[in-house]
Design a protein around this nucleic acid. Structure first.
Length: 426
RNA sequence: GGAGAGGUGGUCGAGCGGCUUAAGGCACUGGUCUUGAAAACCAGCGAAGGGGGGACUCUUCCGUGGGUUCAAAUCCCACCCUCUCCGCCA
């Protein structure tokens, strides 16, 4: 959420940012009119409330003294009616203002490349050597099916399309990756581990920015205001909702595993095969709560921490700075990590690392105090996948496949898989 | 799911229609005293939003949302959460 004061002082920056995002900004003037109207009404209401408070004291005094206060009471009855009317108008205007504020995306950082869509994202660097094969590399879904480590049909039967079963060494590989990543980030990178709830309430979804705008993307539980979490970012960001942290405890760094649930509305026909786009997938997520002046350094470190996973798995990747037209709603700046998939002959997103600045903190009311005397300020929040597990499995299957259909296990994972060195056909 | 008890500032805790501008304690900050510290004493100490150049000032906030009243932390209704006991359960 953006600071309403910024609209009064710095409307131009907001309009420019929205334009670069391709966000329509037609009701800016009516928004400003509402804001002005709100302040007018507020002043009227407050003046009347002050009158009511003062006169009510007089009523109390008169009654105490045994005097008649009927005239005052009669007068205040009218004043109270006026207050009620004004308060209703105010409530209406404030809810309109809030509705607009909640649907406006974050302001972009000045270093974000200007562009229209994903084609305009800027590559920052590449890592790793793209493997060469002396045979035609297979798609991960064919490899997995041949090895009998994933079952898509059973997923479709038991749940529906875009659900699946992992089995045997497939399930083991998925679990090994979760443990490997959690250990790396906890032990090597100093993140604190969290295992959050995977069902969250509406306030949490609004706090981290999924709602009200993207309700059709979420899985909602019938008859309840509960949602299946689309990412561990939602519960972990909201861990500190409406709280004031002390500066000495910042930065706070968390790593959380969760299953993630996405309705994938509007992506019918895209990536219908394999592990790339599912209704349910596993993810290890990195979260940071930091001081505003640190957040861009912390973004670099965050993406480096995510990159480290790919380096240790020896998977080639590139890192992109998302352009203004492709960047997410809550983010001020985002790096995407894309891993190499040999069969597709292209890089595919496997992690997204974002600095949300104070956008989520403002929605969720997460603040900190520099010292005992100072006023609370909003923290900056960052999040990044570290990494998406299913897509990592896909990358391992495709990059580590052998001519005979077997798949080697990356060395760093072997200790997590009872020292299995390859997955072969039974 | 049933029955009870509760939710008040950073924390503990009083208040149960108008002398509350939310008492008091603790914590915290500054000061006095002290070689230094502790203790003691003095003072300060919540958030959000308005107005003003500023010193200031006003409004709102006692789990959340409604209602009653001239006036609500206090009364009424609904909901949420916590605790205790019972039932059920991995």
């Amino acid at each position: 959420m953006l600071d309403i004061k910024r609209f009064r002082n710095d409307l131009e920056t907001i309009e420019t940012a929205l334009k670069h995002r391709g966000h329509p900004l037609n009701d800016m003037t009516s928004f400003m009119q509402l804001d002005t109207k709100r302040r007018e009404l507020l002043q009227q209401a407050e003046q009347l409330k002050n009158q009511r408070n003062v006169v009510s004291q007089d009523v109390a005094k008169k009654k105490k003294a045994g005097e008649n206060a009927e005239d005052l009471i009669k007068e205040m009855r009218e004043v109270s009616d006026q207050i009620k009317t004004l308060d209703e108008e105010l409530r209406e205007i404030e809810s309109q203002l809030e509705q607009i504020l909640l649907t406006l995306p974050n302001i972009l950082h000045s270093s974000v490349p200007i562009g229209k869509d994903e084609d305009d994202n800027v590559e920052i660097r590449r890592w790793g050597d793209i493997p060469t094969f002396d045979f035609e590399p297979k798609a991960h879904w064919d490899i997995a099916t041949n090895l009998d480590i994933v079952n898509f049909e059973a997923g479709a039967k038991v749940s529906g399309s875009r659900f699946l079963f992992y089995k045997g060494l497939g399930a083991r590989l998925e679990r090994a990756l979760i443990n490997f990543m959690m250990d790396l980030h906890c032990i090597e990178h100093g993140y604190e581990e969290m295992l959050p709830p995977m069902v969250v309430n509406r306030n949490s979804m609004v706090g981290s920015g999924q709602l009200p705008k993207f309700e059709e993307d979420a899985f909602k539980l019938e008859n309840d205001e509960y949602f299946l979490t689309p990412t561990a970012e939602v519960p972990v960001v909201n861990f500190y909702r409406e709280e004031i942290l002390s500066a000495e405890h910042l930065p706070k760094k968390y790593v959380a595993y969760s299953a993630c649930f996405r309705s994938e509305a509007g992506s019918a026909g895209r990536d219908t095969r394999g592990l790339i786009r599912l209704h349910q997938f596993n993810k290890v997520e990195l979260l940071k709560f930091v001081k505003p002046e640190d957040s861009y350094d912390q973004l670099e470190k965050l993406s480096e921490n995510a990159e480290k996973v790919l380096q240790l798995l020896n998977l080639p990747y590139r890192i992109l700075s998302l352009c203004t037209g492709d960047i997410g709603f809550t983010s001020a700046k985002t790096y995407d990590l894309e891993v190499w998939l040999p069969q597709s002959n292209m890089y595919r997103e496997i992690s997204s690392c974002s600095n949300c600045e104070d956008f989520q903190a403002r929605r969720a009311g997460i603040r900190f105090r520099r010292d005992h005397k100072s006023k609370p300020e909003f923290v900056h929040t960052l999040n990044g996948s570290g990494l998406a597990i299913g897509r990592t499995v896909a990358a391992i299957l495709e990059n580590y496949q052998q001519a005979d259909g077997t798949v080697k296990i990356p060395e760093v994972l072997q200790p997590y898989m009872n020292h299995v060195r390859e997955i072969s056909i039974k």
